[in-house]
Design a protein around this nucleic acid. Structure first.
Length: 528
RNA sequence: GCCAGAGUAGCUCAGGGGUAGAGCAGAGGACUCAUAAGCCUUUGGUCGGGGGUUCAAAUCCCUCCUCUGGCACCA
């Protein structure tokens, strides 16, 4: 029994269509999850849905449905989306689930009993569309509000607030004192410029207390406050708790102890909290880097080890927007190109952190150059030669390319441990290039014409075949089904899902490979 | 407005006082095992403008311009 590598994605707001941004974040998390499993760690990968709130309530009403029934329908869509992306998540949380809500209420009770909340009257402007309170600062000189807020109403109402100010100093210190949490030098908040933003935010002004309730009269689709039935919980407070409500439901001893839960029995074999990585978008950094750590501290739980912040995608250099039709539909791309190509491009094109730019031409170019003509062609030419010249039977081991393969394996593992997924793919790409160069230099097709060169041909064919096998193991976290196809073509009936197999020489003499077939079929674009 | 960061080859970016780099795109070549794939060679740049420090500046300083991000919301 040992602690699992626990990683999460943001939970998506159910009331919308899955788009490229959602897909990207989930793929990044999935690659990390698969990489860690491949490296031999026990992993728990969580994703899910945020279902409460005004907009969902309103949308359900507009559709003539009860919120729960409405969410059930949409949840099916989102779960199918996760499957389509080939996510390897271990659980899928929905905030409307009882297992989640009981934890939210237990936390609210605990924090309230400990005096973290107070009730106060709020008077001011509110945007139902954005579910947010507005201040005088949000007002334009003429007194109006930006149209993005929709209809703005003036409210006078009581609400519960979470004392934050007393937490400001220790949080600053925590962020500053946790710059390096492992040998790769990962920050508590990464990339470092996001960390600096949070520090600047915390240092520049006093935190305003967080409003954690909404009056039942205005919103009933939420988790009721256990100590005041006239209110439900603010959606953000509700949503963040998913990161520990699922561990609680799974029986994580640390979380259950903090909640003093008597209804659930700890399971000794499930140690999840603290999370190793929260993968989030830059838009929700403040919730994860400020409100969430403070909430955890108040509950008495340790903080997550890392918040990994990714950027946003543009399409053709422009912000994606439904109204202009300037969007990338992940499902359409996957249907046309396959899920592996989609996963590959997303991770290869955009490093975790900066914003990226999706272009269809760029996608097609990478598919052709790196997948079809790169790894795909190397595999195909290697196996076809082994099939033609040696009837598909692996010759005796030979280690000509072993040193370079070992280096690529070592570097790739280091990159994966540091969540440097783009760098890992780039490094793997150098082994593909090396394989193709090796074919040109060793000219096996010429050796095959000269019977006196048979021994040399054996050597070359072994090096090529073994390189392909190593590549399958390295690529598995990124493009699992393609990696498995490589193994199948090599005649190996297991999955290349263990990095410990990325060791030169595991392919045995006398083994017979399977049938070669184009891994990423070339797509000749109709010339327009 | 304020605070960061960035402006280097057609594109994406690395370099960070001492002869300008990579990948892709473009051009040329030899080959033929392969998904007409791959490999080799190669053309591109007064390193945003101006001023300064220095024997020497893409690199340090000043100034201006432009872009991006954060300061208020959103995967």
């Amino acid at each position: 029994m040992r602690k699992r590598f626990y990683l999460t994605t943001a939970i998506d707001y159910v009331n919308g269509e899955p788009h490229l941004g959602h897909a990207y974040e989930k793929i990044v998390a999935d690659v990390i999850a698969r990489a860690r499993r491949s490296l031999g760690e026990e992993v728990f990968f969580l994703t899910g849905l945020d279902e409460h709130g005004q907009k969902v309530q309103q949308a359900a009403l507009d559709n003539g449905k009860k919120p729960q029934a409405y969410c059930d329908e949409l949840a099916a869509v989102w779960k199918a989306f996760a499957k389509k992306l080939n996510l390897s998540n271990d659980d899928f949380v929905r905030t409307s689930e009882p297992r989640h809500q009981t934890v939210v209420q237990a936390i609210l009770s605990k924090l309230n009993a400990a005096g973290h909340f107070y009730k106060a009257q709020y008077r001011g402007f509110y945007s139902p569309k954005e579910e947010t309170f507005l201040t005088e600062k949000d007002r334009r000189p003429d007194g109006s509000f930006d149209s993005s807020y929709g209809q703005v109403v003036e409210l006078v109402e009581d609400n519960y607030y979470f004392h934050l100010r007393e937490h400001q100093q220790w949080l600053i210190e925590h962020i500053e004192s946790h710059p390096k949490i492992d040998p790769q030098g990962r920050e508590f908040i990464e990339p470092i410029y996001r960390r600096n933003e949070v520090l600047a935010f915390l240092k520049n002004k006093a935190l305003e207390d967080l409003c954690i309730s909404r009056p039942l009269a205005r919103l009933n689709w939420g988790v009721p406050l256990p100590f005041d039935e006239q209110f439900v919980t603010y959606v953000w407070f509700d949503a963040l708790v998913n990161y520990i409500s699922v561990p609680a439901a799974q029986g994580d001893p640390a979380v259950l102890a903090a909640l003093k839960s008597e209804s659930r029995k700890p399971k000794a074999d499930i140690e999840l909290w603290p999370a190793d990585v929260h993968v989030i978008g830059k838009d929700i950094l403040k919730f994860h880097a400020v409100y969430w750590p403070i909430t955890l501290r108040a509950i008495g739980l340790p903080l997550p080890k890392q918040i990994l912040v990714h950027g946003w995608w543009q399409k053709d250099g422009q912000k994606m927007s439904k109204s202009t039709g300037n969007v990338v539909d992940p499902l359409a791309v996957i249907d046309e190109w396959g899920v592996d190509a989609f996963r590959y491009y997303a991770v290869r094109e955009l490093d975790i952190g900066p914003d990226g730019n999706w272009t269809d031409a760029g996608f097609a170019a990478r598919y052709k150059a790196e997948l079809a003509d790169g790894i795909g062609n190397l595999l195909n030419r290697s196996l076809k030669m082994l099939q033609s010249y040696r009837a598909g039977v692996v010759p005796p081991r030979h280690d000509e390319l072993a040193p370079q393969a070992d280096q690529v394996v070592n570097d790739t593992i280091a990159h994966l441990r540091g969540n440097q997924l783009q760098a890992a793919l780039q490094r793997i790409g150098t082994l593909v290039t090396r394989g193709n160069q090796y074919v040109e230099q060793s000219v096996p097709f010429k050796l095959a014409k000269d019977p006196s060169k048979a021994a040399r041909l054996d050597q070359v064919l072994y090096n090529l075949t073994e390189t392909c096998r190593i590549l399958a193991v390295l690529l598995w976290p990124f493009i699992p089904t393609a990696a498995e196809k490589i193994y199948a073509q090599l005649g190996l009936d297991v999955s290349p899902d263990k990095m410990s197999e990325a060791v030169w020489g595991r392919l045995n003499v006398g083994h017979t490979i399977g049938e070669p077939a184009p891994l990423f079929p070339r797509k000749d674009q109709p010339s327009k």
